[in-house]
Write a protein that binds this DNA or RNA. Sequence first.
DNA 1: AATAAAAAGTGATCTACATCACATCAGGAA
DNA 2: TTCCTGATGTGATGTAGATCACTTTTTATT
Lengths: 187, 187
Amino acid sequence: MKADLRAHIEKNIPLTDEEFTFVISHFSTKKFKKHQFLIQKDEPVPYSYFIISGLVKLVFTDESGKEHIVSFAMEDWWESDFYAYYTQTKSTMSLECLEDTEVLCCTLEDYKKLCDGLQKMERFFLEKATFGFLGSQRRIISWLTSNSKERYEQLLKQYPTLFQRVSKSQIASYLGVSRETLSRLSS
Amino acid sequence: MKADLRAHIEKNIPLTDEEFTFVISHFSTKKFKKHQFLIQKDEPVPYSYFIISGLVKLVFTDESGKEHIVSFAMEDWWESDFYAYYTQTKSTMSLECLEDTEVLCCTLEDYKKLCDGLQKMERFFLEKATFGFLGSQRRIISWLTSNSKERYEQLLKQYPTLFQRVSKSQIASYLGVSRETLSRLSS
DNA sequence: AATAAAAAGTGATCTACATCACATCAGGAA
DNA sequence: TTCCTGATGTGATGTAGATCACTTTTTATT
């Protein structure tokens, strides 16, 4: 379980045992059941999360109360309301488990200590942030260039396993399409 | 002009003269006229660009030949086809001047040397990447939650000066709306 | 100043998708 | 088993926004 984080980091950057001991000392472990919240809207965001197992959704709720799924995150992903986390403000979104989920938690203070104490980790986070940005940009391009059916097919191709783990309503919410339209698309 | 870069970095992280001399040695200067291309689709992407003055658009052209503006970038911004840049592959987009533009250019090799040679710069790029990601996420949320008119008003509020510098067709392309619809919205 | 070219506005029509309403089906709890 | 809740499918209808066609205005170019 802590080994998962090591394997994850070492996909990019090799670490010595000593370095990894330093890294892991900045994380705590938490477990959540399906339907529990890691982050609640309007509450502070004490942690960013590395997901060891399970699946969560980051949700923005608009004024009318409608939920919009900003992202899903599963094993081997990082998630949080990063804006609220970095700026230490209250969350504008919620982060909720769609499955029982185990995470490693990192406070902003520990995040900074990690970056200061081990340049490799700063490099690692830079790569994560860069490719996170590129993933979002890709999604924007998908919006600009494609209709609902095409976006659905792109998502299916990119994350086929997601479709066995979340309901179609959730997929619809992520794609920005009504669940009825999605139902008609996939038939 | 090189001082612009220093001021830009020092908004986040102070530098000594010596450090800045090191930083600036990794950049070259280029000037482009309106309508010239910094990056052409299907060509390699040798540089990322820091914009000293002027305005550029990052454009994705779909199969039907329709142009979609992925982003605008003006003074004090960084821009490139970052995916192609980091992976050293051919560009899928083009980067074109909407005004006469002056930039500082950084190769991937120099970018890496900068990060290796001065931890402050790695920190700086990490902050840029993080807030770039957050900006994209914000735009996705805007798509998920708002109609054309609302997205138009949000953009107007966020970047009022942009509207004096680019045509409404360009704004429409960025918002993912037809120029006719945009014209009707703003009246 | 004359001409060309790009930008912007506007009507008419079409269509992708939302919304509403209801039926069906599967899984969990008493 | 029975009841309940959430997920899914599907028809009928409404609407935001696309597309097409044309005009007017603004901006460049000679």
